[in-house]
Design a protein around this nucleic acid. Structure first.
Lengths: 201, 201, 201, 201
DNA sequence: GCGTAACCGAGACGGTACGTCAAGTCTTTGC
DNA sequence: GCAAAGACTTGACGTACCGTCTCGGTTACGC
């Protein structure tokens, strides 16, 4: 893990090696999925000794999480969610962009692998939450708070509930490979979450 | 798979063996999770030859799916969802019951294992949908249709969308181990889905 | 084994089945050798249940021995060795015929398989001696005895010793795949055995 | 195999491991015979991973051959055959010593196993010839050549033929477990080979 | 001519071993 | 002292056969 304190002496960690390992790990999980990814394959393909991987990552899960993080956040901190004034449009745009990412087979498989690992491994899921999920939720909550201030959202609605109502249905359709993930289907989810199912009752 | 037509001759499949394998598979996945479940371990613990497992199930995923199905639907076909006339109460009750199942560590781990397998394996996910997910969705859609007939739900709302809006948030909180899964939290999800986030807009 | 006494009642053994099994066993050992011959393969290839083989033969070795016997002695009891009056010629002819049998790849492999089994299995080697080796040695001893009577062989030489001196070198060259097995080489063995190595000493 | 050139880097092969494997392999083949020797058993009994065996030996045969070689030639290169001046005595002594080795049940079973393997496997038989059989034949030929020089053996007799005539009968009696292997029986073979069967003809 | 005993094809079953793959650790060498 | 190469133990993989055991069906006596 990158939190390791700098040692006082000796050769320093080679950043190029780290990058090669993470890049290869992403490629492998994208090609073979998580279950069939092996440390050995990553090491060989990255031109690196197995020990070099074991020195820095405790297991497959941590490695893949880092690999996906590196690739996702690679370009730097993600900016805020769009704010055109029209909440439904903005949320739909974000979700459509997410669905489009899923359409890339490499990203799809990598993310499925990571998600599968997270479901079973509590420690990994905590790291995932802290480093990927919470930052993203924060952006979402910020956008929704502005919507509340603009009177487009109930002032007393719990923002975590709101995020789940809006985003969880898409995730569910993706993980289980069933349900409408077209732009129209996604917009219907947003509209449903905002207006409610019970109509003018 | 049980759909295989009876061969004209030869020794017949032993149902006790099948039951022992599925029971043991459930126990093992409940104890160790999916990743550390091993066909070898199941065979040994069930007092069964490995080949007997490989003869009838193509891989870990299929085995675990059958094991969970057997345990879940063991008692027979699940009846309809409750219908007290109050939709919010009924849906909350169903979700609270689901959450309570998750609270059983054995069931929790078994279901996590199955879910992880499904995310990565398209074939398995199809079988899962056909044999577990779709039947359950059907019950949910039936209850919601009655609510439409009673005027408690918009007549033109898509029922699959409705099911996702109501049930996906709970699933998300469970898989990622974050978010409020208390009865109150669950009721808030139902209420949010029914009334919408945007209030009287 | 065929010596089993006939039971008083019940269906009798099907000779066609026996023949099919032995024929297939020979083919398989001729193609794959003894080590890779499998009861299962023989059963499948002969269109026969495994149990039918196990009912009549206790193990691979017995089966292969019977198969080779059936094929070797198939046409009936082998007649006497040739007796033209010239001992060297006659013995050379017999050995050349033997070498020619070895040249048939199927027979070669089958016999190698049987021989390998015999070397390791004392029981099998006893059956082999009684049913194949001793009858053949008897023919050889008979020919040599006539040679003694004709004054072509020392009267006081032990006939078993004589048989071994004449025939063992060829067998050795075959099993170890080294040494001259041409007609000339074989004749040299016979001549050497008859005249001795020490010349006129 | 020892011919592998040393790589420039990496952990070196552990000679103690090699010795443990070969020693155990010999013990196992001596106890159970070749057919029932199992790589798995050797690995377990030698306290070694299976992979370590498969890394260095391609199959059972090669392993057993090496094991027998190691045990036979363990003490170093075998010296020349005895040369007392009396050829019959010397050859008889060598053969009697061989027969005495066969009397050790462990060596007997180990050698039977190896021999069985060699009969069926051409590649193995070649290695056997090069590393065990040819060196021994060479010693024998050398002794016989000295006998020729001393006028005790025909000058024009082929030495390979001579070796086969003298030694093959003993081997045959051993492999087929029939025939006289007593010191007298062995001396009779030597005498027969030297003097010939046809007497003063 | 019917029962019953043995034969037969088929194939499930509990097992053992196969030969391969990968995990994670350790050792050696080179930079 | 990091990194590579690679030997090592461990253990699971999925396959192939083992030898035993039903199962349903079929002869073929012998009462």
């Amino acid at each position: 893990m990158p939190t390791a304190q700098q040692p006082s002496t000796g050769r320093r960690r080679n950043p190029a090696t780290r990058a090669a390992i993470l890049g290869t790990a992403f490629d492998v999980v994208a090609e073979l999925g998580y279950a069939r990814l092996t440390i050995e394959k990553v090491a060989a393909q990255a031109g690196v000794g197995k020990q070099t991987i074991y020195r820095w990552w405790p297991n497959k899960g941590a490695l893949v999480l880092d690999a996906v993080l590196e690739r996702s956040l690679g370009a730097g901190e993600p900016g805020d969610l769009p704010d055109s004034g029209d909440l439904e449009d903005d949320l739909t745009a974000v979700l459509v962009a997410t669905v489009e990412e899923f359409a890339d087979p490499a990203f799809d498989r990598a993310l499925r692998g990571l998600t599968a690992a997270i479901i079973e491994d509590p420690e990994l899921s905590q790291v995932y939450r802290e480093r990927l999920d919470e930052p993203m939720r924060d952006l979402k909550r910020r956008r929704l708070r502005r919507a509340q201030e603009a009177g487009q959202l109930d002032a007393d609605v719990d923002l975590d509930l709101a995020v789940d109502l809006i985003f969880a249905p898409v995730t569910r359709r993706w993980t289980e490979r069933s349900g409408d993930l077209s732009p129209e289907g996604v917009r219907a989810i947003v509209r449903g979450a905002l207006r409610g199912l019970a109509g003018s009752v």
